[in-house]
Design a protein around this nucleic acid. Structure first.
Lengths: 147, 147
DNA sequence: TCCTTTTGTTAACTACGGTTAACATTATAT
DNA sequence: ATATAATGTTAACCGTAGTTAACAAAAGGA
C-alpha cells in the first residue's frame, strides 16, 4: 500500500500522460503546486513500488500495475465526485475538492456501495447492474462518464 | 486549524472525560493504541492551541474552545457514520472505521448537506428542519442520537 | 515511612513529505 | 558548435507524528 501523497502523484502522472503524452518532472510539479525535488522523490518512490519505470534523466512511464492503480484511483474519485455533486448538490468545484480528499480514505467496499447508491438514486441504471470498481462497468454508466 | 492527528486526540480526550471523569495520559494512550510520549506531545500541542488546560503532572481539562471543537468533530462523525450505516448499508464496524477517516477531511458545508440528506432519506425529519452542525439540532434528531 | 509500582516526561531517534540552494545534465538558439 | 536556458538531481534542511529507552514524579502498600 502506497501513501496518499504517492497516490496523488500517480494520479497526476496518469492524467498528464493521457492528456499530453510525454511528461516531465516540471509538468508534475506545476500541476501539483510543489517543488521539483518533491516530484523527484515521489517518482523514485513510485519506481521502487513498481508503479512507474524511470531512469535518471529519462522518461516517465507507467507500469501496467501503475496504470491499473491510477485508473482505480480516478474511478473512486469519479464516484465520490458524482455523489457530492449530483446527490448532495455541492457546487462543482467544491465537489471536486471534497472528492479529492475523500477518495483517499474510503475502502473499495464503500466505494462500490456509494457507486451503486448514487447510480440508483440518479436513475442511471437499475439495481441489477453489477457495478464494481474492479470489474466492468455497465453500459449506461460507461456512457455517463465517457469524455 | 489543528492537524487531523490532534483532532483525534481531542476527540478521545472528550469521550474519555465524559465517560470516565478524570483521565490520564495512560488512558489516552491505551484508547488510541499509541505510546505515552506521543500522548504527551499531543497534549502539549493541544495546550498551545488553547484547547486544553494542562500543567506537567497535572490533570487534563478541556477549555470551552476545546470542548466545542470536540463536540463538532463528534457531530461530524455521527453524521458520516449514520450515512454509511443506514443509507449505504455498511456494517456497523465498517461504518465506524470509514466515518473516522471521512470526518477528518470533509468541510462543514458538506457535513451539513450530508446531514440534511441522510435525515431526509431516513425520514427522520422534514426538509424545513434547520439542521446545522454549528447550531441547535431539531428535537427528533436529538432524540435519534441520544444515548 | 519508605520501598515499589504506576504513571508521566524527556531525550534521541525514525520515517514521511515537503522545502531551498547548489549543481548536473539536456535542450535550444544563434 | 557552443553558450545559454531549461530541466532534473542531490544535499541539507524543516515540521509532524510516531517510536524506544531512560529517568522523574506520584501513588500505594507493608
Amino acid at each position: 500500500m502506497i501513501s496518499k501523497a504517492l497516490e496523488e502523484y500517480l494520479k497526476t502522472i496518469y492524467l498528464l500522460k493521457t492528456q499530453n503524452g510525454n511528461i516531465r518532472v516540471t509538468d508534475i510539479a506545476n500541476k501539483m503546486n510543489c517543488s521539483k525535488p518533491s516530484v523527484n522523490k515521489a517518482i523514485n518512490n513510485l519506481k521502487e513500488n513498481n508503479l512507474i519505470n524511470y531512469e535518471t534523466y529519462g522518461t516517465i512511464e507507467l507500469t501496467e500495475e501503475g496504470e491499473n492503480l491510477a485508473k482505480k484511483i480516478l474511478e473512486t474519485y469519479d464516484i465520490v465526485y458524482l455523489f457530492f455533486k449530483d446527490v448532495l448538490g455541492l457546487e462543482e468545484e467544491k465537489a471536486e475538492q471534497e472528492a479529492e480528499e475523500v477518495k483517499l480514505v474510503i475502502t473499495d467496499e464503500t466505494t462500490n456501495k456509494l457507486a451503486r447508491y448514487t447510480h440508483k438514486v440518479l436513475g442511471l441504471y437499475n439495481l441489477d447492474c453489477a457495478y464494481d470498481v474492479n470489474q466492468e462497468r455497465c453500459r449506461r454508466c460507461k456512457r455517463r462518464t465517457a469524455k
